[in-house]
């Protein structure tokens, strides 16, 4: 084999992004490329963009299906159980105090006012932080419609998944006005649950958008906060250094358009390597 062999092969893999986006790889090749994708940020970005292009090709073909199909599919749905999305959630009750489950308010934190302090002070213990985050999750259950409750159930499952990870850790930060951001994260599961508390009051047409910050990379949107509902972020790699929240126009922005209202480092929860 020529000394250039390995070099060429690597080059070759990058160039498979377009055939991959078009589903034009053979099964073995597809698997190999998917493996490669997990390590190649550049390819992931490229594949995502190319796949969106392919979807335009798909969309342009829309045609109404036969009317009878609707009843068939809806009937099938009624007797088809759903996947949980991942391996069944391990039922391990998190070791958290009772207020966490919504029966009591979270413990108050008294603070002597200080002249100047950093915007956010990390909590001393993970349990206290987790307690705060989880309290945030369950404080908002009242007055929800069934649909919202169902969505929350899915989310609760995600949260339980993160909580059950062997390396789950939590951190939180609070600013001078008592507003806080909380994170429960698992580096091995690449997941985190993020809550905002006390930031709810925004002018109409504005939203809080969550960003993942990594060195030398553009911030990546992790989603929009809706009121007090926590966000579940997946696919976080270990290079993630911090989270930031900005105020953006309704619907969110592709990149932050304002200074963060809050930023929280992820080092204490096992990221930022």
């Amino acid at each position: 084999m020529s000394v250039l062999g390995p070099l060429f092969r690597r080059e070759d893999r990058h160039s498979l992004a377009a055939p991959y986006a078009l589903d034009a790889l053979e099964p073995d090749e597809r698997r190999r490329f998917e493996k490669h994708l997990q390590k190649c940020g550049r390819c992931t970005v490229e594949v995502r963009a190319l796949s969106e292009d392919a979807v335009r090709l798909a969309w342009s073909q829309a045609a109404p299906p036969p009317a009878a199909m609707r009843e068939r599919v809806l009937a099938a749905v009624q007797r088809t159980p759903q996947e949980l999305g991942r391996a069944p959630v391990r039922e391990r009750a998190p070791q958290l105090p009772p207020h966490v489950w919504g029966t009591e308010p979270p413990p108050g934190r008294s603070r002597a006012p200080r002249a100047r302090r950093p915007l956010f002070v990390p909590f001393a213990t993970a349990t206290a932080a987790a307690a705060l985050v989880v309290a945030g999750l369950f404080a908002v259950q009242a007055n929800r419609t069934q649909d919202q409750l169902d969505a929350q159930r899915t989310q609760a499952r995600e949260i339980a998944h993160v909580l059950a990870a062997p390396d789950v850790r939590a951190t939180t930060g609070t600013d001078e006005r008592g507003r806080s951001i909380g994170v429960i994260a698992s580096a091995s599961e690449k997941e985190a649950v993020i809550t905002l508390t006390g930031y709810a009051d925004l002018p109409t047409g504005r939203v809080h958008q969550l960003w993942l910050m990594r060195p030398n990379v553009q911030p990546r949107s992790l989603g929009l906060f809706e009121g007090d509902t926590p966000l579940v972020a997946t696919g976080l790699d270990r290079t993630a250094t911090s989270l930031a929240v900005t105020v953006e126009p309704d619907g969110g922005s592709a990149q932050p358009t304002s200074q963060p209202v809050v930023q929280l480092t992820l080092k204490s929860v096992g990221f930022g390597e």
């Binding site: 798909a58 969309w59 073909q61 829309a62 109404p64 299906p65």
Partner: peptide
Amino acid sequence: VSGPVFGL
């Protein structure tokens, strides 16, 4: 989504 899916 049924239209786009079926058409494709």
